[in-house]
Amino acid sequence: MAPLLEVKDLKVEFSTRYGNVTALDGVSFELNAGETLGVVGESGCGKSITALAVMGLIPMPPGRIAGGSIKFKGEELIGAPESRLRQLRGAEIGMIFQEPMTSLNPVFRVGDQIAEAILLHQGGSKAEARARAVELLKTVGIPEPDRRARAYPHELSGGMRQRVMIAMAMSCRPQVLIADEPTTALDVTVQAQIFDLMREIQQEFGVAIIMITHDMGAISEMADRVAVMYAGKMIEEGSADAILDSPGHPYTSGLIGCIPILDQAIALSDRPPPLAEIPGVVPPLHLLGAGCAFAERCSQVHDACTVSPVLIGAPHAVACHAYAAGKS
């Protein structure tokens, strides 16, 4: 079966005062119906740019898609007319943003904002769209949906607003849902509610989810497959179990090791051991050389790392010379 979404060798450049900077360099992935792909990495690694590129929302200029292809159900989206992209956005590919307060319009009632998306993509009467909006609010677990539909965003809590965002994203039954750090602004108990809701929605509607996050815990709870990004490149990809239990790239294992994640054994020890550290910081994109971008922070760096490694292997792909040498 052909994948729902197929991204190949995607390259995005931005012109900055340091010259042309490659924000995404040869990113490839596939998304099948009904699965969740987790995209993980530190800030600046290109996670959000990947999502924006799929939605056709890269600001141009200064951005530019320098190469590659994005196919949705076999249809090429790069170079597609804006009118076609507008049909797809919202209707076929929905998006949930990080900050629910700034992504809702503060001067319109939330029910009307959901109804607007329905009217735009599916037509029908205003009354029908409003009724559907109330129904959606109920689906995402908002109590008293009739009353809440008439509320303004500021009258709702952060968790409620994110539920409204999900209702809006789901309003036209999209086949792909892109969630860009959907719970970063929320408290943990509310985050858990949103995660549970997203899993329920996926089961009920079979939507495929791209979940962008920096949180390995969120990956563990939500993702079937994981793509790890570093400095604009995809450096590891595989099933969530493979990535979390036997990471191949030193960066991935560093990322897992350095997170103070909840663990019964650590909590109950007399003195928790020091956390693993990844030394240094992500290099600025305009200073990237030809070699592996992670080389200067890597504990396993050697001569071969002056050449950029390629992502190889299936189903667990790793872009690392040391890993490849260990395998062969």
Binding site: G217, E221, D224, A240, L244
Partner: peptide, 13 residues
């Protein structure tokens, strides 16, 4: 709180 905090032990798989 403990049940809500993300943990690597909780797998979708």
């Amino acid at each position: 709180l403990l049940d809500s905090a993300p943990s690597l032990a909780r797998r979708k798989s």
